[in-house]
Every structure is written in C-alpha cells, then in structure tokens.
C-alpha cells in the first residue's frame, strides 16, 4: 500500500471519530477543553503506535485462538506506561483526565487497529497506521475540545477570546459534548461527500 495514503487516511477518510465512530467515551468525556483533548489524543496516539508495532512484530508467534487476550495485555502494558509517566511528569493533566487514562485499554480504536490492521501487515505499515489513526483521533479531540471551550467559556487553549460571562456553560457540561459532536459528524459527512 502507498505509505502516504496509509498515513493520511486517519485524518479524514477513515477518521476514527468522525467516520468510524470508535472510542466515543474518551471523546466525549475529556473534551471540556482543547488542552485536555490534545493530551488525551497524544496519550492514545502513543499507545496506538506502540501497540501496533508490537502486535505486528509478534503476530506470527501468537496462536490465533488467544490473540485477543494477548493484544489486550500488550495494550494494557503500554497504557500503564503512559499512566505512570503522566502521573510523574504531567500531574495536572493526569488529574483532569482522571479515570479516562486507564480506560484507554478498552478504547475500541486501539484493539480495533491491532486486530484489523497490525495483525495482518508488516511493522512499518502498522506503525504508520497507528500514527495516522492516533493523530486523526487527536485532531478530532482537539477540535471538539476547542469548540466546547470556546462556546462554553470564551477561551481557546486558555487564551481568552470573549468574556467568560457570555459563555454558554452548557457546552462545557455533558449535553454540550453530545450536541457538538453530532454537528461535527454532520459537517464531516458533508465534506466527505463533496
């Protein structure tokens, strides 16, 4: 497969959130601000990249019957790595992402890519696939976070755009997450068709 196409597919054509609709829980849960969305996206990207590489390396060693549990163990190990390093170096972000860091394990994208792509392709393609999906995921999360932060509190990346008093608090809270994501998916459908 053409590696460039392989790399760009995660952004629009097969974007994990807008098109594949995978990994909805962290998408909605952590995107109350752009920074949180970006942090979560990059943490997931790391796990995706490493899990894809390792799965692709060991794919011939693992018997077919136990492949799913083995993939889960590989993924869970990298999630633990992320969890511990984030706790050490980025305690603020770790606190605001909270429960959703260990929950990267059950993020359908990671297992989905390991099963659908890395277990069938060579290491380089799998690494590129992981990176592409991860960055596409981060992009979607950052956009969602930025929109919610902007509408809800008048800020983007903590930079004030309009006074906070005029913000619609609803968008920072739970309902805003569903509604903004709904419209974003509608827009991305439109762009894809055009």
């Amino acid at each position: 497969m053409n590696q460039w196409n392989n790399f760009t597919k995660g952004f629009l054509k097969e974007n994990p959130i807008f098109v594949l609709l995978l990994g909805m829980c962290p998408t909605l849960g952590v995107t109350s601000s752009a920074i949180n969305g970006l942090g979560m996206g990059l943490a997931t990207t790391f796990v995706l990249l490493m899990a894809n590489i390792v799965v692709s390396l060991v794919k011939n060693v693992i018997p077919d019957k136990v492949r799913i549990p083995s993939f889960i163990v590989i993924i869970a190990s990298f999630v633990t790595v992320v969890e511990l390093s984030m706790q050490a170096y980025l305690p603020e972000l770790f606190k605001s992402l909270g429960l959703f860091i260990p929950l990267i394990v059950v993020n359908c994208i990671v297992l989905g890519r390991a099963e659908a792509f890395a277990s069938k392709n060579n290491v380089l393609s799998s690494a590129i696939d992981g990176l592409s999906m991860g960055l596409g995921f981060s992009m979607a999360l950052t956009i969602l976070g930025a929109i919610r932060e902007f509408l809800g509190s008048g800020k983007i990346f903590n930079i004030s755009v309009f006074p906070e008093d005029y913000g619609m608090l609803l968008f920072v809270l739970a309902p805003g997450a569903f509604i903004v994501l709904g419209y974003l998916i509608a827009i991305s459908n439109k762009i894809k068709k055009a």
């Binding site: 739970a174 309902p175 997450a177 569903f178 509604i179 709904g182 998916i185 509608a186 827009i187 439109k190």
Partner: peptide
C-alpha cells in the same frame, strides 16, 4: 445532513 448518527447524538445531548 443530520440523518443517522448526528441526530442521534443531538438527541442524546437533550436526554443528558
């Protein structure tokens, strides 16, 4: 444009 998932998400938002 809203058919399918988008409208479902918006309804979920209203439910929330």
């Amino acid at each position: 444009g809203l058919k399918g998932t988008p409208i479902a998400l918006i309804v979920a938002g209203i439910l929330a």
